[in-house]
């Protein structure tokens, strides 16, 4: 394992022109505190890190190095599921809630308490919160719940009222119900097979819920693209601001490789007859840098 410098040493590297932007990302060595299975094929790891608590925002993510060997090569991105400041103020404990889907996550599930982990983060732009009296609606699909809990924690700390909708194929894929209830949120569940809660799509449940709600102040969604699309449509038709957290294959997580881009409706250069003009229209944005949280209006949903 590489002996990384402490983050205090690293901060000396930063040039004055970037120092004002706030802290991070950091390349740190964390310690695995626990890594239990929560339900079949979902694990949750808690990691002690020297990352300052105040530098982490809900919706941000970390890149975890999987192996010192060349295979699997790339780091894997995971949302910061929850965070807690250390009493000593010398860092924070972060949690990652992950689903076993392939080589990397299979390896992660075998990691034992005490393992030293190579963590890069916090990365990306998280959710932005408008402090507003209305109800905040959090919508999670499957493992998407991993990306929303830290937001719930923050909303609770700010005294905001939130309603949480959690959807999944079957009841085995409904995550974090007790955790959200622990925050005092009212939690609604939907399963496609009806094995728990509402039978059908979580987006349908959200649509009817919003109809009876006087002042929803914002939607915050994380989950599969199909679900996010439906939520974006609902938000548009009801004129409610909506933020979505997107995923994409990533290599660097730092905005350098341009591998993680998605189509947005920004300005774009258009080529015609060897000339490039700037037209208002789609452009690519980096999920790791301008995202992973986007305003749903920004996204070109047809291209996703």
């Amino acid at each position: 394992m590489n002996s990384y410098e402490t983050i205090k040493d690293r901060s000396m590297n930063s040039s004055p022109s970037v120092a004002k932007e706030g802290g991070g990302p950091y390349l740190v060595c964390g310690t695995l505190l626990e890594n239990p299975m929560v339900v079949s094929s979902y694990h949750k790891m808690r990691i002690r890190t020297p990352i300052p608590y105040e530098d982490i925002h809900p919706g941000q993510f970390v890149m975890v190095r999987i192996s010192e060997e060349p295979f699997p090569l790339l780091r894997r991105p995971f949302s910061i599921h929850s965070l807690r400041e250390l009493r000593t103020k010398e860092g924070s404990d972060i949690e990652i809630l992950y689903k076993i889907v392939g080589k990397g996550t299979n390896l992660m599930a075998s990691w034992k308490r005490g393992k030293r982990l190579d963590i890069l983060g916090p990365l990306g732009k998280g959710f932005s919160l408008s402090i507003n009296k209305g109800v905040q609606v959090l919508i999670a699909g499957g493992i998407g719940a991993a990306g929303l809990f830290a937001l719930g924690q923050k909303m609770k700390a700010l005294g905001l009222q939130c309603s949480v909708f959690i959807g999944g194929k079957t009841k085995e894929h409904i995550l974090c119900v007790d955790e959200f209830r622990g925050l005092g949120a009212d939690v609604h569940m939907a399963t496609e097979d009806g094995s728990l809660g509402f039978r059908g799509m979580v987006s349908d449940m959200v649509r009817s819920f919003l109809h009876g709600l006087p002042d929803p102040s914002g939607l915050f969604a994380c989950g599969p693209v199909g679900m996010l699309k439906s939520i974006a449509e609902i938000a548009k038709s009801q004129s409610i601001p909506c933020q979505v957290s997107l995923e994409s294959r990533m290599a660097c997580g730092l905005g350098a490789c341009l591998g993680c881009v998605i189509r947005t409706k920004g300005e774009r250069p258009v080529k015609s007859q060897g000339e490039t003009r700037h037209e208002k229209g789609a452009s690519y944005k980096r999920v790791c840098k301008e995202g992973p949280v986007f305003n749903s209006e920004e996204i070109d949903w047809r291209k996703i």
Partner: peptide
């Protein structure tokens, strides 16, 4: 000379001990 938009995603994939990119 002019800005370039690049290819449409997905642009990267990990392979055995490497990655392929089409940025």
């Amino acid at each position: 000379i002019k800005p370039m938009e690049g290819n449409s995603p997905p642009r990267i994939v990990e392979t055995a001990s490497g990655m392929i990119n089409s940025i």
